[in-house]
Design a protein around this nucleic acid. Structure first.
Lengths: 145, 145
DNA sequence: TTCCTTATTGCGAAAATTCCCAATAAGGCG
DNA sequence: CGCCTTATTGGGAATTTTCGCAATAAGGAA
């Protein structure tokens, strides 16, 4: 997966937003760092290149890029938030509340569900990434033990 | 909706956990405060009754009771977490990333999806509460404008 | 290229959440 | 009822995330 800087920039400007070096650098950091990128990891990355870039900006820009559907938010097992490029092949998580395991869920499983939301509720579910919490094979029975 | 203190206590002890006044008070607070109860609201409530009960305990207990499936976690539109009794009639949220609106989603919509996860992945999705992020009717088209 | 408007940033303070660890107190057992 | 083990708590410090506002700088227009 790669990303089209020019197109993204054009899109942002068209919506009245500005393309700043900070935004570009932060987006680049998420891209380079791969999946499940934490704000702190982004900060470390960009801080090396732009020492004055503040933590507040990292948080703000990650949130902003998520709103613009350029990034996707990922709820991690430890309850923290992470981010990744939204354009990547969608994959979802089953997170076990008991053992904190993370299972990947193929996107195909979500298709029909999303379709229903779309047609019946006119709500476009953001399927860049979803996390479902629950209990995995090993833990689902051991609760009442 | 009411809750069965005796049964909950029995269940906890059976699993080797302890029933403390703090846990009971916090559970009671969530029950009394209703839906979408924030940690801070819980703290305010319990602090009046038990001034030494610490914030750390509030957070720990809320997390703990969620693990025990006595409470359910709710992702609010502003990104914060809230809690509510897990035994209540399940309802879910569609949260618009653009305008932060919250739409209620009847539980019935989730039935077949949950079934699929259960049979095909042997994963028991916690359906006490789910939040889906995306874009509502009013906002879904206005993105590229 | 310069000017103007106003979206963004930086910084420091505030708020929210988690951590650490010694002190406390459930509750099982005799 | 009292003892013991160890799950929990309290409190403060550490960490994470958000906020407020003055200073900065995109980028459209002249």
């Amino acid at each position: 997966m790669n990303y089209n800087t020019t197109e993204i920039n054009r899109q942002l400007r068209k919506s009245g937003f500005r393309v700043t070096p900070q935004r570009q650098l932060i987006l680049d950091a998420v891209y380079k760092l791969g999946e499940h990128v934490t704000p702190e990891a982004v900060y470390d990355y960009v801080h090396r290149i732009a020492p004055t870039l503040s933590r507040a900006t990292v948080y703000r820009v990650l949130h902003f890029l998520t709103e613009q559907r350029i990034l996707a938010m990922v709820y991690m097992a430890d309850g923290h938030l992470a981010y990744e490029m939204a354009g990547a092949e969608p994959h979802h998580h089953l997170v076990c509340r008991t053992c904190d395991s993370l299972f990947e869920l193929p996107h195909s499983v979500l298709r029909s569900f999303r379709q229903t939301m779309d047609t019946q509720y006119d709500f476009e579910i953001d399927v860049s990434h979803l996390s479902f919490f629950g209990h995995c094979t090993d833990c689902r029975d051991s609760t009442g033990a």
